[in-house]
Design a protein around this nucleic acid. Structure first.
Length: 577
DNA sequence: GCCGTTTTCGGCCCGACTGTTTTCAGTCG
């Protein structure tokens, strides 16, 4: 997915078809086939129209003859007839019932058949009137659980930001660490894969007496409800809406179980398929040789990958987006690491809306081991952010020069975050931009313009000789604002042609570019820069969230201009100036 | 509906838990 509208739309329809087929009690492998195809199209780094034109649709893994035909139908007519038929045959609201924990397709189908339930309200009413307990394989407990699940579903909030999950995980691990008898605890799941948002938190632990750990776990502060509690696992709701699952495992299976609970589901399905191809069966407990039933136990995750003939796959890559094939061929990237980052090119100081002085920021950057930092303050049209005009800019140039004279071991670069105005022009004239070491150009206003307008704005900024980096390119804010409607492919082409870098904004609620877009940028040969967009010295640490995105995007040191040393960076910046 | 280094037909990831049963279907991760 390069955030191409068509890719998104087609993936969306295929997902929905999978869901509808489920409700019609279709062959479950057919359902899996549809969601697999949807996922493949969602992660596609090319525009699907192009793939279709080249006759390569069936080259997409999971897309065969039938689905390829449906994609063609969609591109030709804007709809898929079999999808329309399914929609017509399914009451609206039925699909939502699958979201109720404990209800799967079989039960929803039966509720519809026997009680004519078609939506959430009717389900709730039937449960309250005790009509559900009389159905086959239902009972009083299930009826009560349905009511509880409905309540939880209505209360649930969005997936939480990774950074929020991080502080909850830290809290839980600190708490568990204080319990006697706990050997080892770590967070798995999407948190360990460093996804930008986290749905629930999975904690794995080893301990000699699991029951004692479970008992302490459910008594943690901020636990509001205990969903399940057994001898080796428990689930609770914390902080109002976050589900936290704890599993305690034997030490000898720690490697396989960590692999398993890190996911993703799709990665695991492919791993197990690969194991079968090689004559093994992989479970969370062991790798079993099919020929003789012999169990191989691994307490290290690395050994699991090794045993299947794979390079070790870092958790960030485990999304079944080609990582297994790459690991088989020894072609995994050497992912960028925190120590590769040499500087931060988008930081705000007291000269605009930041809270720290030039010296404070420079010293903080130096203590992080950086070689350079660029103070990219706002331009005037971003009024609420204290954007600065020409006169103040002259003063700031002086101040930066002075800072460089007094500082050792760090170089302060004179920068600006210039606004890309609604008409596509920049908020500083060229003669002023020319005097900057680093120019970040970003859209702050009129982000809801039409696709063509926004794309044109971005491209004209990219084509400006003085612009080095496009800041937060899509403008999305997680859970708050959708990305601007744009032809991302055209933006990438312009960036590649002009040697303009795109930003991975590391603010935890921006993370813009996201992982998929950044990977598409890499494949187009576009350079990127991970920038904190810090407004005080402490926020320089947000860099790590951007590194998470970069790693999930398969980026290496060479893809990032702020992994260059100062000499190379200046060379890069000069090329355009 | 997809797919093939034993397969173009017959498979398709695996195990635990829950609530319902009286041996297991459905759901979840």
């Amino acid at each position: 997915m390069i955030d191409s509208v068509k890719n998104r739309e087609i993936a969306g329809i295929l997902y929905q078809m999978a869901e509808l087929l489920e409700l019609h009690a279709e062959n479950r492998f057919k359902i899996i086939a549809y969601s697999r195809a949807a996922r493949a199209i969602e992660s596609l780094t090319e525009d699907i129209e192009q793939v279709c034109r080249d006759g390569r649709l069936e080259g997409i893994p999971g897309v065969g003859k039938a689905i390829a035909e449906k994609i063609k139908e969609y591109l030709r007519t804007g709809r898929i007839q079999s999808h329309q038929d399914l929609l017509a045959d399914t009451p609206q609201g039925l699909a939502e019932l699958l979201q109720i924990s404990g209800l799967g397709p079989k039960t929803v189908f039966m509720l519809h058949e026997k009680l004519d339930i078609t939506n959430l309200d009717e389900l709730e009413k039937a449960a309250r009137e005790h009509r559900i307990r009389r159905l086959p394989r239902m009972g009083v407990v299930r009826e009560k659980n349905i009511l509880k699940s409905i309540e939880r579903y209505r209360k649930r909030s969005n997936r939480i930001l990774y950074s929020t999950a991080e502080s909850i995980v830290d809290e839980i691990l600190t708490y568990l660490g204080g319990i006697e008898g706990l050997e080892h605890a770590t967070a798995a799941g999407s948190y360990r894969r460093r996804k930008e948002t986290v749905g629930d938190i999975d904690i794995l632990a080893t301990a000699a007496r699991p029951e004692e750990i479970v008992a302490a776990f459910v008594k943690m502060p901020l636990v509001e409800e205990v969903l399940a509690k057994g001898p080796t696992k428990a689930s609770v709701i914390m902080n109002d809406t976050i589900q936290v699952d704890l599993r305690i495992v034997e030490h000898r299976s720690y490697g396989t179980v960590l692999q398993y609970f890190t996911g993703s589901k799709e990665h695991n399905v492919s791993m197990r398929q690969l194991a079968l191809d090689r004559g093994y069966s992989l479970s969370e407990y062991s790798l079993t040789r099919l020929a003789n039933g012999q169990d191989l136990f691994f307490d290290q995750e690395e050994e699991v990958y090794q045993a299947l003939g794979l390079q070790y796959i870092p958790p960030e890559l485990r999304e079944d987006r080609g990582e297994i094939e790459a690991a088989l061929g020894g072609r995994l990237p050497r992912l960028v690491e925190a120590k590769d980052i040499r500087g931060d090119l988008h930081v705000h100081s007291i000269w605009s809306d930041g809270r720290a002085s030039i010296i404070e920021l420079a010293q903080a950057a130096r203590s992080l081991g950086y070689e350079y930092i660029a103070l990219s303050d706002h331009s005037p049209s971003v009024g609420i952010a204290g954007g600065i005009g020409r006169e103040k800019m002259e003063e700031k140039i002086e101040a930066v020069a002075e800072a460089n004279d007094s500082l050792e071991g760090i170089t302060v670069l004179m920068g600006a975050e210039v606004d890309i105005k609604a008409d596509g022009s920049l908020d500083y004239p060229d003669d002023l931009l020319e005097r900057m070491d680093v120019v970040v150009a970003s859209v702050h206003m009129a982000q809801q313009q039409k696709e063509r307008t926004i794309t044109g704005r971005l491209i004209s900024a990219i084509e400006n000789q003085n612009v080095d980096i496009i800041g937060h390119p899509t403008g999305r804010i997680i859970n708050q604002r959708e990305p601007s409607d744009m032809d991302f492919h055209a933006v990438l082409e312009a960036a590649a042609k002009t040697g303009t870098a795109l930003e991975i904004n590391a603010h935890p609620s921006r993370l813009d570019l996201n992982d998929v877009n950044a990977r598409a940028a890499k494949e187009m040969g576009v350079q990127m820069s991970i920038n904190s967009d810090a407004h005080d010295a402490g926020q320089l640490l947000n860099m790590k969230y951007g590194i998470n995105v970069a790693r999930r995007a398969w980026l290496e040191k060479k893809d990032l201009i702020n992994a260059m040393d100062l000499k190379d960076l200046i060379q890069f910046l000069k090329k355009k100036h």
